[in-house]
Amino acid sequence: MHPRLRPLFALLLCAACLLLPAVAAAKQTFVMVHGATAGGWEWKRTGQFLVDAGHTVYRPTLTGLGEREHLNSTEIDLETHINDVVNLILFEDLHDVVLTGHSYGGMVITGVMDRIPERLRHVVFLDAAVPGDGQSIWDLFEGGGQDPERFKDGFMQVPWVKPGDKPPYSVKHSVKCFSQPVRYRNPAALALPVSYVAFVPADQSVEERARKDRSWQNAKARGWTIRTFPGGHVAQQEDPRGVAALIAELAGEPLAAEAQPAG
């Protein structure tokens, strides 16, 4: 190297050393909580887009569901599932977590927010239940469990799963998860930055959804960020990359256009 270039090289090297930690710090840790009867498998493709963009993703399966179906029991309740996620975050020693919850998962992440707000940096409710303190999901939706064919023997049944179906598939879900109220009163939890995303199908107007959706109304009353995404209730399976991009954007780290899932 020419002697005159050495100071310039040293300056560039110093700048790179200063910039690299900032780049690394921009990558996020996501914990993605699935909805009723499902499992972590339901978020595999969405999570993979985030992983391919350099983020860390955890997709816990709640006790008794998904690949943990062998643990299913009528004694499983909402607190069991809150403990699943709290313990994952604590035992993996995660900090600055971007926590997401889909559908029933909104009940779970509400409880997680109340328990360990100091471990969270942003929370995203994805077409999810947004309960108040002391509410169950049945309280939020003004009743539930009225259909004797769907709610029986202590479980919410899933009639679309047939004998001999190959995994992954939905499984029956303990009704105690739907009747147990959640705690949401920790001042630190109430102060967390939160986003609510409504998955709005093509045959429904945004205005109609906003008028009828109690979770949307609760989120708006709390001053949360409100976003919409085109698609049905399982939009993460219809457009996994689009949902991943929105989650990353809400977390403050836009998904690179070239990010693609591995296989």
Rank of each mutant, 00 (worst) to 15 (best):
P3G: 07
R6W: 14
R6G: 09
L8T: 14
L13S: 13
C14F: 11
C17Q: 09
L20R: 13
H34M: 06
A36W: 01
A38E: 11
A38M: 14
G39I: 00
G40I: 08
E42N: 13
D52W: 09
A53S: 15
G54P: 08
H55Y: 06
T56G: 03
Y58T: 10
R59Y: 05
T63G: 09
G64F: 03
E67W: 01
R68A: 10
E69Y: 12
E69Q: 11
L71S: 00
N72R: 15
T74C: 11
E75N: 13
E79G: 04
I82P: 01
N83W: 04
D84R: 00
D84Q: 03
L88K: 07
I89A: 10
I89G: 01
L90F: 07
E92T: 12
L94P: 03
H95D: 13
H102D: 05
Y104S: 10
Y104R: 14
Y104V: 02
M107L: 13
V108K: 03
I109T: 09
T110I: 05
G111R: 05
I116C: 04
I116V: 15
P117L: 12
P117W: 10
H122T: 02
F125V: 03
L126G: 00
L126I: 06
D127V: 06
D127A: 05
A129W: 04
A129C: 05
W138T: 06
L140R: 07
F141M: 13
F141S: 12
E142M: 10
E149L: 07
E149F: 02
R150A: 13
F151I: 10
G154Q: 01
Q157G: 08
Q157H: 15
V158F: 14
P159N: 02
W160G: 04
W160Q: 12
K162Y: 02
K162R: 14
P163Q: 08
D165M: 07
K166G: 04
Y169Q: 11
S170T: 14
C177P: 03
C177I: 14
Y184H: 08
N186Y: 04
N186Q: 03
N186H: 09
P187I: 12
A188W: 07
S195M: 02
Y196L: 02
Y196R: 02
A198Y: 00
F199M: 02
V200L: 03
V200H: 01
D203F: 09
D203W: 06
S205H: 06
S205Q: 05
S205N: 03
E207N: 04
E208S: 13
E208I: 08
D213N: 15
S215V: 03
W216L: 03
N218Q: 11
A219Y: 00
A219F: 00
K220R: 15
K220T: 06
R222I: 00
G223W: 00
W224Y: 14
T225E: 15
T225C: 14
I226A: 11
R227Y: 04
T228P: 09
G231D: 10
Q236N: 15
E238Y: 09
R241E: 10
L246N: 08
L246E: 09
E249A: 11
E249P: 00
L250M: 10
L250D: 04
A257T: 10
E258F: 11
E258L: 12
A259F: 05
A259C: 03
Q260L: 14
Q260E: 15
P261K: 07
A262F: 08
A262Y: 08
G263N: 05
